[in-house]
Amino acid sequence: MSTAITTGGPRALRAEVVSVREAGRHHRVSLRVEDLTGFRPGAFVSLAVGDQHDQRLARRSFWIHRLSPVGLELLVEPVGAAGRWLTSAAPGTQLSLIGPLGRPFALPSDAVTCLLVGDGRAAAPLVPLAERLRERDAPVHVLLTGRDASDLLTSHDLRRLVRTVTVVTNDGSVGRAGSVAEVLPEVLASSGAEVVYAASSSPATLHAIALAAEQHGAWSQVGLEVPHPCGTGLCHGCGVPVVGEDGVGRTVRGCAEGPVFRGDRVRWVDL
């Protein structure tokens, strides 16, 4: 046991790559991290990627996909300089990790029916969320979407946690063909969900989910991916336009005041 005083806030830690395994078009990156405490679903970690001679300085944010016995696991797409570096990192590679960061998904106080909508790699935080909701005896339904079969989150570990899993791919290679917006009203109606949790790298998709939830009379919480230059709230470079409880428009930090927002609080057209 660590004798350090734990406040549950983020900490700057050292991480070590344990393994990188392909999962469709994404990679599961397992990191050894000591003393990561206070994790809640929807939180993220900020990594300094690249070696010390790399000329790139911005950090990168990744959803915590799950905790593991040695640390945690991330889902990473081998795209861009950071994604390629991380998915090709050899076991034993050391990197700076800060976390857990951000405002996570808020859990309902009662065991209300929940629908979790996950788009591609961004569905990563929904697995630990489903686990927490299950612990609270909340009936959970899942709608997974992606560009094609290789983009979908593997659903076998979700299936044991939830009542139904509906799959939609844009190209129809698995499940139903179409967009999440086309299928959502039907899934909302059949599940009777009172709360919708969603995560996507596409603001347009999240907007559509938030609208559908509102029309159905459900609360929505959306996990928003906007680039975080620092991830720690320092740079004010990840502005998200929102409207406050007082009805006044504000721009807040996507990392520190997010990444999870109430769907009806984001000014989607200004994003």
Binding site: Q55, P229, T251
Partner: peptide, 22 residues
């Protein structure tokens, strides 16, 4: 605070940034 925030982009060995109207 309703205006756009800072814009920050990385460039080799640096950051290019503008303060924004925020």
């Amino acid at each position: 605070v309703g205006g756009p925030m800072a814009v920050i982009q990385e460039s080799p060995s640096g950051f290019v940034h503008a303060t924004g109207r925020h």
